[in-house]
């Protein structure tokens, strides 16, 4: 049973690591957007994307968490019980997405907030502000990718 618990810990880490990163990131970007919206409400459409962008880390974390849940068969079906080492493997496999999501979410929020400043002055630059913020996200994606591939390789 310890194996299952460890695997669940991994799943939980992935979800809340990405979740924390995203909530801080979206929080930073959202505050900047709210400030600009009070002056220029017509830019809502452009700003929404910038504010939402740091939210993806949370989704990636959730995704990894779900993959673990489905691997354990916890959502109905026949639950499998991994032994302790398999549980540890799953736990470690979850770390890339958890940590990279946590850190990149926060930083992406900062870049997005800076992008809001760009949109404030020149709305036609919204696309470029987005691309700059996306540069940060690459590492969350690579983290997710590593987690997916690792989970895929673990045999129970």
């Amino acid at each position: 049973m310890i194996g299952t618990a460890l695997a669940i810990l991994g799943s939980a880490l992935a979800v809340f690591g990405g979740g924390i990163g995203s909530s801080i990131g979206v929080g930073i970007a959202g505050q900047a957007c709210a400030g600009l919206l009070s002056e220029q409400p017509e830019k809502f459409g452009n700003l929404l994307l910038l504010a939402a962008l740091p939210g993806t880390q949370g989704i990636y974390g959730f995704l990894a968490g779900f993959l673990v849940i489905s691997k354990l068969g916890l959502l109905g079906g026949n639950p499998v019980t991994p032994d302790m080492f398999q549980g540890l493997q799953i736990l470690f496999a979850c770390l890339p997405v958890a940590i990279s999501g946590l850190v990149s979410g926060i930083h992406q929020g900062k870049v997005s907030a800076a992008g809001v400043g760009m949109v404030a002055k020149r709305v036609e630059e919204a696309g470029r502000a987005l691309i700059l913020a996306v540069l940060v996200e690459t590492y969350a994606i690579l983290g997710l990718l590593a987690t997916i591939l690792l989970l895929n390789g673990i045999k129970i």
């Binding site: 989704i59 990636y60 995704l63 779900f66 690459t138 994606i141 690579l142 997710l144 990718l145 997916i148």
Partner: peptide, 14 residues
């Protein structure tokens, strides 16, 4: 370009 896999999987899993 591996992001294509990650994003493609994300859609399917969600």
């Amino acid at each position: 370009y591996s992001r294509l896999l990650a994003l493609g999987l994300a859609t399917g899993v969600i």
